[in-house]
């Protein structure tokens, strides 16, 4: 079977970018925003008991691999997913798949990828990329968060695929086994969006969805009692989780607004178009919040940080975001 040459594309987020690029390669036109939205992976979670670099886990989306799994479920794509206990075996299988002419998705650590900017190399193990070929001892890599394709040696990629720890990739490789030719968007889009909106509004746990945002806001309100250095690191950590790791800005809210716009046009829904505009405004509010955090971090020791003001701002964001989900759930 002759496949078209692989074409790299720049994306905001690694996992949705990989899925979009991979689907396009196999003939299904699916933008990154659609891949993200249709996976139903938009979320918010604040997990004070799970520590990442000594800081509580704050996530603006569901768990890693949720986009891959969500797309399988919602679009009827079948992915072949494989993990390995021995690194050497994982490299052999990858090389074999490439020799067959496949492009292969892989989960890796960020820290051990030498092509990442030095200042961006942290121990985060749920990065995703596409390997689309091998030349000599070097893999040809399409890392969706980079503008152009990159290269990485066999040893370095193996190290990055087999780090141990939280969200350890275990050498995960994935590629599509079945890609549907037609997708019934008119049926799927409303279903996925409503389910996602309900999950954001009506979680039973007080640390997920809109309730999670409010829980984080309350926590910020109490930071005045904590050590100032810790408080500042915590605020910086929130900014990083929201803006740093390929979220398309404002913790995926802009990607989702883009999805709502595209989906609304696809099925001719003014309701989705309206929600898209609202979600863009929410994204802008998240950015205003990040700016306030940055100013607080900058402030000198003599000045006191106005934690209640930060709490109030985040509560406003939560309310505005809840409004978007209510609009998406309203019957017209």
């Amino acid at each position: 079977m002759i496949r078209p040459r692989y074409e790299h594309g720049h994306s905001a987020h690694c996992e949705s970018g990989v899925m979009s690029l991979m689907m396009r390669h196999y003939g299904l036109q699916l933008s990154e925003a659609m891949a993200f939205g249709l996976s139903g992976a938009l979320m918010f979670a604040y997990l004070p008991f799970v520590k990442l670099g000594g800081m509580p886990l704050i996530a603006y989306r569901r768990m890693p691999r949720a986009i891959i799994k969500g797309l399988q479920k919602n679009l009827g794509i079948t992915m072949k997913m494989q993990t390995f206990s021995r690194p050497k075996k994982g490299t052999e299988i990858l090389d074999g798949l490439l020799a067959e002419g496949r492009i292969v998705g892989a989960q890796t650590s960020v820290f051990w990828l030498p092509y990442f900017p030095e200042e961006m190399r942290f121990h985060f193990n749920a990065h995703n990329l596409i390997v689309y070929g091998k030349e000599g001892n070097e893999y040809l890599i399409s890392d969706p968060v980079f503008e152009a394709p990159v290269r990485c040696s066999t040893e370095d990629l193996q190290k990055a695929r087999f780090v141990k720890g939280v969200m350890a990739p275990k050498g995960l490789l994935y590629y599509p086994a079945h890609v549907p030719e037609v997708i019934d968007y008119a049926a799927i889009i409303p279903k996925v969006i409503k389910k996602n909106a309900r999950a954001m509004l009506k979680t039973p746990v007080p640390i997920a969805g809109i309730r999670g945002i409010r829980a984080l806001a309350r926590n910020i309100g109490t930071l005045g009692k904590k050590d100032l250095r810790y408080a500042k690191l915590f605020l910086g950590h929130i900014v990083r989780m929201q803006e740093e790791i390929g979220t398309g800005g404002a913790g995926f809210r802009f990607i989702y607004a883009s999805f709502l716009q595209e989906a609304g046009r696809l099925i001719g829904s003014p309701q989705l178009a309206e929600a898209s505009v609202m979600m863009t405004a929410v994204g802008d509010q998240w950015r205003e919040f990040a700016l306030m955090l940055a100013r607080a971090i900058r402030s000198k020791k003599s000045q006191t940080i106005d934690f209640p003001a930060l709490q109030l701002k985040l509560e406003d964001v939560a309310e505005a975001e809840a409004d978007v989900y209510r609009t998406l759930l309203s019957k017209r």
Binding site: L233, V239, E244
Partner: peptide
């Protein structure tokens, strides 16, 4: 209309990364 824009970075993000 939504479009992808390549950004050379936001100060706010850069400061948070450098703080860490």
């Amino acid at each position: 209309d939504y479009t992808l824009v390549a950004s050379s970075g936001w100060d706010v993000e850069g400061e948070a990364t450098r703080q860490a």
